[in-house]
Design a binder for these strands. Structure first.
Ligand SMILES: [Mn+2]
Ligand SMILES: [Mn+2]
Ligand SMILES: [Zn+2]
Ligand SMILES: [Zn+2]
Lengths: 141, 141
DNA sequence: ACTAAATTTGCAATAATGTTGCAACTTTTA
DNA sequence: TAAAAGTTGCAACATTATTGCAAATTTAGT
């Protein structure tokens, strides 16, 4: 129905994954969406199409392969978003700020906003950073 | 047994909360600890002392009152840490970086490390920020 | 100190969320 | 097209969290 049909196949093949209906559908949801998705969102969009377990396993596979990355949250939900950087199997390079809109509750990857370095106390060695900003997004302003 | 006994009472009273065994015990755990605690940690320390539901409700009350704050995580766990700033009912002012040690897995509030401001894309209005840094802590170095 | 009112707690039931093993099915490879 | 490899759905189970309500505890007023 749109250009995502072949795009999903390409991404899956590039990552040496079998091209299956479930993976294509879930990947297309990420491609069509500008914000992050939770497991529950995906279940809502796919309905009875696939088993819950398949959704769990697909998301896990996508994270492992570096197709999507996890976004930290304060409630106990897990959010996933497409990796736009060149993430590889087992190692992500995403290093951008995440924005959570207080109005529409969407979580958006600010791909061009790099996480700044901070000076840590003596004895602490940094490895990786995450940063989230809450507020009002450009759609809701 | 130590100075936390009266300290817990003071904190609870200041926040207009009934002084109960459960609240005193849980609060004393936070006071004795330099890192964050998860619900599971608290259950481990309190054992059969209190019902799980009481622990849930106590933590929720502490967050609402501004006694402890939530710390974002990437797995789906919820971490709580004592507020050292002057947080009030319904409004937290914690604005420090959180450090997660890759070795001992402790999460520590870096109370003196302020979260830096970032320049957001046009149309985005910031309200509050969170920042977490992974790495090796001063104890594990 | 005693009592009534207000608050908190534990229990039981229920819901939501996530994990595992395994056989059937689908996709890939050759 | 057939065998091998990989994926899926199902069922069972585990973990984590939420709710209503009666009993117990704490607080406030005398
Ligand atoms: Mn992102
Ligand atoms: Mn903190
Ligand atoms: Zn918005
Ligand atoms: Zn450490």
């Amino acid at each position: 129905m749109d250009q995502h049909f072949t795009m999903t196949d390409d991404i899956l093949k590039k990552n040496k994954l079998s091209v299956t209906d479930g993976r294509k559908k879930i990947l297309s949801l990420f491609l069509a969406r500008d914000g992050a998705l939770a497991h529950a969102d995906i279940e809502k969009f796919t309905g009875e199409m696939f088993d819950r377990v398949t959704v769990y396993r697909t998301l896990q596979t996508f994270v492992e392969k570096g197709i999507v990355h996890l976004i930290p949250t304060t409630d106990n939900s897990i959010l996933y978003a497409l990796c736009k950087e060149n993430c590889e199997e087992g190692h992500h390079h995403d290093n951008h700020v995440h924005f959570i809109c207080d109005v529409c509750t969407k979580t958006i990857c600010l791909d061009d906003v790099t996480i700044p370095k901070v000076k840590l106390p003596k004895g602490f060695t940094p490895n990786h950073s995450e940063m989230m900003v809450n507020g009002v997004c450009s759609d809701c302003k």
